[in-house]
Nucleic acid binder design. Sequence first.
DNA 1: TATGAATGAGCGTTCATTCAT
DNA 2: TATGAATGAACGCTCATTCAT
Lengths: 196, 196, 196, 196
Amino acid sequence: MTKKEMILKAAQEAFGQLGFHAATVKDVAGRADVSFGLVSHYFGSKQDLFLAAGFDMADHLVAKLTEATDGDQNGLESIRQYMTAYFKFTDEHRNRFPILLRCSPFSHMEPGIDAAKVAEKFSVFIDKLKSCVSQGIEDGSIRELPTNETALIIYGNIVGSVRTSLLTPYKSEDIFMETIKHVMRSLKNSPDQEGC
Amino acid sequence: MTKKEMILKAAQEAFGQLGFHAATVKDVAGRADVSFGLVSHYFGSKQDLFLAAGFDMADHLVAKLTEATDGDQNGLESIRQYMTAYFKFTDEHRNRFPILLRCSPFSHMEPGIDAAKVAEKFSVFIDKLKSCVSQGIEDGSIRELPTNETALIIYGNIVGSVRTSLLTPYKSEDIFMETIKHVMRSLKNSPDQEGC
Amino acid sequence: MTKKEMILKAAQEAFGQLGFHAATVKDVAGRADVSFGLVSHYFGSKQDLFLAAGFDMADHLVAKLTEATDGDQNGLESIRQYMTAYFKFTDEHRNRFPILLRCSPFSHMEPGIDAAKVAEKFSVFIDKLKSCVSQGIEDGSIRELPTNETALIIYGNIVGSVRTSLLTPYKSEDIFMETIKHVMRSLKNSPDQEGC
Amino acid sequence: MTKKEMILKAAQEAFGQLGFHAATVKDVAGRADVSFGLVSHYFGSKQDLFLAAGFDMADHLVAKLTEATDGDQNGLESIRQYMTAYFKFTDEHRNRFPILLRCSPFSHMEPGIDAAKVAEKFSVFIDKLKSCVSQGIEDGSIRELPTNETALIIYGNIVGSVRTSLLTPYKSEDIFMETIKHVMRSLKNSPDQEGC
DNA sequence: TATGAATGAGCGTTCATTCAT
DNA sequence: TATGAATGAACGCTCATTCAT
C-alpha cells in the first residue's frame, strides 16, 4: 500500500471515529505513520482530505450495491439485495465505515465542507433505490407507492439501523435482518390487503 | 424570558445548526445578546451547556410524546400518535430541533461529552415505543414482532425521515405522512397475510 | 468576629497557601463564608486586600518581637529572644503565616503590588535586629561586626529556616533551635578566639 | 544559539523577573523573538517550560558547585568554596538567576507545578553540603554538629543572602563575603571554645 | 451592609497551514 | 517525495471588577 493510500485509510478511520473537527491532521498522519507534512502534500487542505476520504468509501459501497442489484430479479428482491449488501458492507468496515455517516447529506455538514458536492455524490444511493421501487411497482412485486418518498424512507430505514448498530448502546440481536423484514412487509404487494 | 433561558435557546439554535465544535461560546452569547462570560456563569463549561441544551429539548419532546400516547387507543394507534406528535414537534421547532439530532445516542458523540448520560436520557424515547409495541401485540393491533428490534427500527424510521427533511436537499412532498403509513403497513396485524 | 475580620483571616490563608495570582477573590469569600461582593466592599481591589492581609500579619509579629526584645538583657540575648519569638509565632500561625513569606521584600513582589510600601513596612524587622546588634557590640556580648550586614544575615537566617520548615520536604528534627545556636555561635564575643 | 535555546533563556528571564503566573507565554516568545506557537512546539505546556527553565539553571549551578568542591581541601574549606562559587554564579547571572529562587523547594510552588520533581532536583544542593559537613567533622575542621540541620541552615543562609541582594532594597556593601564569614565562624572547630 | 448578575480583558492552548530543506 | 520548524488565528475559560438591588 502506498503512503497516499495509507493516509486515506487513516483519514477514514480518524474522521469516522472523531469527526471532522476533533480529528486532527497530525492524528491522521500518526495513524498512517507518515509526517504530517505529507498529508497536505497529497491531499491539500483538511476539507479536501475529508471529502476524499468520504468519497472513496462511498465509491466502494456504490460498487457493492451496483453488483447486488444488477441481477434480473424483481424490484422487491432488488431492494432486499441492496439492503443486504449495504449492511454487509458496514459490518465488513466497522472501523472506517462511520466516515460515511459523517460525510453524508443525511448528516449535518461541517461548516466549510461543500454540501452540494456531497449531496450530488450521494444522490446515486437514492437513485438506485428509486429505480428498484419503480421497477417493483411495474413488475407487481411492490404495491403502488410514491417512488421518491418510498426510496427516501427506505434509505432512512437503512441508515437508521446502521446508526443504531454502530453508535448506540441499545444493542439488538439482529437489527439488520429485522430491518429488511420491516421494509419487505411494508412494500410487498398483497392484492387482497388494503392500505391503512 | 430570563437571560439564562435566552442562552439556552441560543445554544440549541447554534449547536443545532453548527454542531458542538463549530458553534462557539461567543456565538451562543451573541445570539442570546449577552456577554460570553454569562454563559460560563450560568452553565459552566461548553460541554455542560451542550448537554443542558439537548436535555431541555428532549424534556419538551418527551412531554409531548407522553401526552400523545396517554389515550386509551390500541398499540398501533399509539404508535401513530407518537409519530405524529414527533413530526409535529420537529416542524414547530425547525430552528432549534436539530440539537436533538446532535445530542443523541444515534449520533456520534463529540469526544468529551458524556455519552452514557445522553444514552440514559434518550432511553425513554425507545422505552415508550417498546410499551406501545408490546401493548399492540397484546391487543392484537400489531403482528407478532420482536419488541426491542421493532421499537429501535421505528425510532430509526422517525429519525431517518427527520434527517431527510431537515438536513438533505432531497425534498419530498410529505415524507412524514408517508413514513407513518410505511410503519403502519409494516406493523399492522392482518390475519390473512403471512410474513415474508 | 466581624465579617470584615473573617475576610482578612481568609485572605491570609488563601494568599499564603496559593499566592497572589492563584488565590481568587471568590476563594477568599468562600473561606470567609461571605459573598464575593463584600470583599470589594470592605477592601477595594485584590491588591489592596493582599497588602491589608500581609500588613495585619506583620503588625502582629512586630508586636511579639517588640515584647520579646523589650527586656534589659544584653544584645546577644535580645537576639536570641527575637529569634525565639519569631519561630514561636510561625509555629502558632502555620496556616496563615505564609502570607508574610509572600508579602515581603525578601520575596518577589507580584507586579502591581507597591513594593516600596512593603519594604517600608518590613524595615522595622531589620531595624530591630540592628539595634540588638549595636547594643550587643556595645555591651560586649557580640563581637565586632558590621551592624547592617549582620542584621540582614540574621534575618536571612531566620527566614531561611522558616522556609525550610514550612515549604520544603527536607524535614528536620529541630531546625529552629539549631538555627538559634548557629547564630549565637557566630555572634558571640569570645575574647580568646580570633576571626577567620 | 538555536531558537529552542533562545526560548529557554527568555523563559528564565521572564519567570525570574515576573514569576510563573505574571510571566506570560507570549511574553517569553516576545523576548526570544519567536512566535508563541513555537514555545508549545518545543516545550509543551507553560508548566513544562517553567521546569525546563529552572532545571537548566540548576544544572549549570550544580556543575559549578561540583567543580568548586572537588579539590582535596578540608570540609570547612569545601563549604567556603561552595558558598563562594554559589555567590559568584548569582552575580554572573543576575538577569536569569532568579528563576532558581522561584523554581525551588524553598519557595512556594505554584499550584500545578510538580513540587516533588523540584524537590528531587534540588536535593543535590543539600546533599553536597551534607557531605562537606560530614567530611569537616571527620577531618576536625568543623565542630560536632548535626549534619542534616547544619546543611539546611547553611543553604538557608546562602539563599537568604541571595534574596537580600537580588530582591530587597536593603542594600549592603558586601553581604556575600560577610555571609561566608558568618558561616565559617559558626562552624569552625575551636577546641578551646565551648558551645553556647 | 450584603448579594450575585453581568461584563470583557487577557490567559494558555490547539492546530491547520506554509515553506525551507 | 518527505520532513518538521515556524506561524498566528481562534478557541474555551478564568476572574477581577462594577453595579443594580
